[in-house]
Every structure is written in structure tokens, then in C-alpha cells.
Amino acid sequence: MATLLARAGVSCCELAEEDFLAISPSDQRYRQVQYILLDPSCSGSGMATRRLEEPGAGTPSKARLQALAGFQRRALCHALTFPSLQRLVYSTCSLCQEENEDVVRDALQHNSGTFRLVPVLPSWPHRGLGTFPGAECCLRASPETTLTGGFFVAVLERVEVPR
């Protein structure tokens, strides 16, 4: 990761090799974090090359989906507790609603009124599944509809509290 960041000319970040779920958002090192890119482990159901190399890889078992979604939900809810967080990008390379819209919906409900979804690339034609109000702000892609790898992106933004 350090090599990729250096090649890209990124100098405003510090790598931390730690268990994200074990990090305390109130720790002095992380209290001022304003932006998080959360790309948690997922089924990879949107990765066309994986689906070709591993027969059945495109359709994870229900138990695996539940386990992954549980982890993703914990990671997203944890990320939303960072006190200075302004914006978070949640992404997966999954086509599964359980790992995408369902996780985002649950995290928003858990943090009711604190965060909202904001539109991701508004001109992108394929939006989140209409499983809850606001899901249309999310972005979806799939090999069949967009001729890309399959992925999902949601941007959550802290709601400003009126003073």
C-alpha cells in the first residue's frame, strides 16, 4: 500500500496496520479522522474473472452472505462512530443486496439522523436497489448491465446539526 500511495503522489496519509474493529475512534491518533474509505471483505460476486476461475463463486451460500454482511455491518457502524467523521465511502465488489443496500440501510437506522446518503456520480445510470428510501443515491455496476466488474458504492455524509 505504501508503494502505491507513493507512486500516486499521496503524502497526506499515514498507514496503520491494525484491526479496524479494535481501533478506538476516541484514540488521539484517530479523533480527527474526517474521511474514511471502507472497502470491507466481501463475497466478490461482482468479480467476473473470479466467477470464471471458480465455478459457483458468483453465488455465495446464504450462511457465507450472512457472515460477511454481519462483519460489514459491524465495520460500517464502527466507522460511523469516529467523532470528526464527515464523509464515508462504502464499497464492495459484490452484487448481493445483503452486502450492499441491506448493510447501508441497517447502518443508517443504527445511526438515525446522524448520517445521510448523498448521490454517487449522479449521471451513472444504474442506481441502488429500491429497498429503502435513499437507496437511489447508491451506485451499482455489473458485468451484464455496465460491461464492468460488479461493484457497489454508497457515500454517507454527516448531517449538520442546526445551531
Results as ranks from 00 to 15, higher is better:
Q66Y: 04
Q66V: 04
H78Q: 07
F71H: 13
L80N: 05
R73G: 00
A67S: 13
R73K: 13
L76W: 02
Q72A: 10
G70Q: 06
G56D: 12
A79K: 01
S61R: 07
G58I: 12
C77L: 01
L52H: 15
R74Q: 15
L65A: 06
F82A: 08
E53I: 08
P55N: 11
E53G: 04
S61Y: 02
T59N: 11
E53W: 10
P60L: 03
A63Y: 02
R64S: 10
A79D: 07
G58K: 10
R64H: 02
A67Y: 00
L68T: 06
S61A: 10
T59H: 09
P60V: 07
R51C: 14
P60F: 04
R64Q: 14
L65V: 07
R74S: 12
A67F: 02
L76Q: 08
A79H: 05
L65E: 03
L52D: 14
S84R: 14
L52S: 14
A75F: 00
L76V: 06
Q66E: 13
E53H: 13
G70E: 02
S61K: 09
L68D: 03
Q72C: 15
K62N: 02
C77K: 07
R73H: 11
R51N: 15
Q72T: 06
F82Y: 14
L76A: 05
E54Q: 12
Q72D: 12
R50N: 11
A75Q: 01
L65S: 11
F82P: 09
H78D: 06
S84N: 13
P83R: 02
A75I: 04
E53C: 12
S61C: 10
G58R: 07
T81W: 04
A57T: 00
L65W: 01
T81N: 14
F82G: 03
P60T: 04
C77S: 08
P55S: 13
P83A: 07
L52K: 14
E54M: 13
A63T: 12
T81P: 01
A57N: 03
R73T: 13
Q66G: 01
E54R: 09
Q72Y: 08
A79V: 00
A63E: 12
R51P: 01
A67V: 03
S61N: 00
R50Y: 06
T59V: 15
